[in-house]
């Protein structure tokens, strides 16, 4: 994708970000804070985003994704109004994700759940996945990978009920992370080849379930 219209913005961001660069390169990935918000944001926009961050943190939700969303918007040349709207939506979806996944959900699960909600999953689908996950593994493992796979399928226009049922059946059988990655990759290839998303998901999921059964039978 060539996006020459935003090239000047990227160059500007590069210049303003040089000071942070060496620290980041050496220190790896630290969660963003309000102090890390890009300087290109107007003061009023910053204030609004910081307030949103404070409000989610006050109820125990992660605030770093909100600041990261704002920084992404700046890099991509979005207007301040659009950035605030996206951050506000994300704050709401994080809250909805926790309501669906429960208070024991980790940050990664909440962020993945919010992403799934954003692309069309319903809170009931997330609750169903959580219940299946708890029944299968006691909830000791992370549900983030299945949620990311669900969001990816939905983003590829797989009907929500089909995508949720597919992921739920894999969670119920204790499918490993690799199976979710394999599912999304296979569906992507099928769709690119012109196959209907729904048919692809159904067939690929059945194949993975057969493999899981086969692995269980093999001593």
């Amino acid at each position: 994708m060539r996006l020459t219209v935003i090239r000047p913005l990227i160059v500007g961001a590069m210049l303003s970000g040089l000071a942070q660069a060496s620290a980041l390169a050496q220190g790896g990935a630290a969660p963003m804070t309000a102090a890390d918000l890009p300087s290109q944001l107007a003061a009023a926009t910053r204030q609004t985003i910081v307030r949103l961050g404070d409000s989610v943190r006050a109820v125990g939700l992660p605030d770093a994704p909100l600041y990261a969303k704002a920084a992404e918007g700046v890099l991509k040349g979005a207007t301040d109004a659009r950035i605030v709207s996206a951050v506000r939506t994300l704050a709401r979806e994080l809250g909805d994700a926790r309501a669906a996944l429960g208070s024991v959900a980790g940050d990664a699960e909440l962020v993945a759940g919010a992403s799934a909600l954003h692309v069309g999953a319903s809170p009931a689908m997330l609750r169903q996945l959580r219940d299946t996950h708890v029944a299968g593994s006691g909830g000791n493992t992370s549900l983030a990978t299945p949620l990311v796979a669900l969001a990816d399928l939905l983003a590829r226009r797989v009907p929500a009920s089909v995508a949720a049922a597919a992921i739920d059946s894999l969670v119920a059988r204790g499918a490993p992370s690799d199976d979710f990655a394999a599912l999304r990759a296979a569906v992507e290839r099928d769709i690119d080849a012109g196959r209907a998303p729904e048919a692809s998901v159904v067939q690929r999921t059945q194949g993975l379930l057969r493999n899981i059964e086969g692995r269980r039978r093999t001593p």
Binding site: E72, G73, V104, S115, V119, S142, A155, S177
Partner: peptide, 20 residues
């Protein structure tokens, strides 16, 4: 990334680990 709000798609990588 399904949650592209700014009209320019991004990608997702998931790092497995304990519940975090």
């Amino acid at each position: 990334a399904g949650d592209d709000d700014f009209g320019v798609p991004s990608s997702v990588v998931l790092v497995a680990g304990a519940k975090s």
